[in-house]
Design a protein around this nucleic acid. Structure first.
Lengths: 187, 187
DNA sequence: GTCGACATGTAACCAGTTACATGATTAA
DNA sequence: TTAATCATGTAACTGGTTACATGTCGAC
């Protein structure tokens, strides 16, 4: 039989992310969705409808509170803030050791793995497409990098971005190498 | 109004993976689960119970067929094979352009992103833990690499592994660099 | 008067997980 | 007899998605 002490259900990653953003600045679901895209978006991007339901859930759990804000020039909105309990839950999540490191999970990899069942052209096309996408995101990341490099308040975001950059660079290099090797074989 | 030509529901990634493995060798759900872990496991690992239900679904869709195999020395089993339709569906999946490239999605990154809300020690600990895990998987990958390098029949698996290796190496390098920089700041 | 940004959701679905149930067979 | 491996599932849940519904408000 559980007592009331059991109420510390761990946070979803999305819940944690939203609390983290809300700590910076109380927002409506609509605003939050946009803030997600503008910040953690490239590494965590829930659907808009999901954001709304997570907010309601946080509120229900007493981790966030909302107040109606009447606006004259545009539709009214519900602005959510983090409650003391919510802040506690967030730091607990943040400070808790351990993390999930879900593996590759990319269909490119899986398709390549089964490449011997496809024509060489298919594999080459796959790799070329992949390279293209990777180079595009690489360009994005580099732009963000230029924007936030050196800015002290973005230090942690910068460190995070760095890993994304490193991965993208490694991916691009790999794709080029693999393409070369692959073409070498077919030639 | 749809005609019967509409029956080409696209394959789930897991379905495709299972079909791909079944093409190499018909197997029971139990065997397949083990084969998954031994091959694509590090980049795609469905739960055992999920494998069973996917197999039944493939059978229902006419993409796989099963026959009961009576065993004297151990419990009987259902062995699944790919039907001609299944083979067609698999190559369609394999040959279809496009792929999903879900982003980072690691909680490490997210926790780091919110690092300014945590103590420096927490962040350092996080990075150290991460580095440890990455180095362990790196060691695993290198062992697999030694095992399959040069073997022509594993060429595609090898190429796939190479990306995993490149990512792991980049991650380790990044973690070390970030730790250094971080400690430099605190010092 | 209609388009686009603002704002909040609902409904239906889905891939996948965890925990558990069940039982055969063999080796210690 | 008990534990391990083989073998197949069920039940309940969950984190998340897509598609859609609904409406406000200012700008053109």
């Amino acid at each position: 039989v559980r007592t009331s002490a059991q109420r510390t259900k761990e946070l979803t990653t999305t819940e944690a992310a939203l609390l983290g953003l809300l700590l910076d600045c109380p927002s409506s679901g609509y605003d939050l969705s946009k803030r997600v895209r503008a910040s953690v978006g490239y590494l965590w991007g829930p659907a808009k409808s999901h954001v709304y339901s997570m907010l309601r859930r946080l509120e229900g759990a007493g981790l966030a509170s909302s107040r109606a804000v009447v606006q004259a020039d545009r539709p009214d909105k519900q602005v959510f803030s983090v409650t003391p309990d919510g802040a506690k839950a967030f730091t607990a999540w943040l400070e808790a050791p351990g993390f999930e490191l879900e593996p590759g999970r990319s269909t490119v990899l899986l398709k390549l793995f089964f490449g011997r069942r496809a024509s060489p052209e298919t594999t080459v096309a796959l790799l070329e497409d992949y390279l293209e996408v990777v180079e595009a995101t690489l360009a994005d990341y580099r732009e963000v990098e230029r924007r936030i490099a050196g800015r002290d308040e973005d230090l942690y975001g910068y460190m995070t971005l760095k890993l994304g950059l490193a991965h993208a660079e490694a991916s691009a290099r790999w794709a080029r190498d693999t393409l070369d090797e692959f073409r070498g074989r077919s030639a």
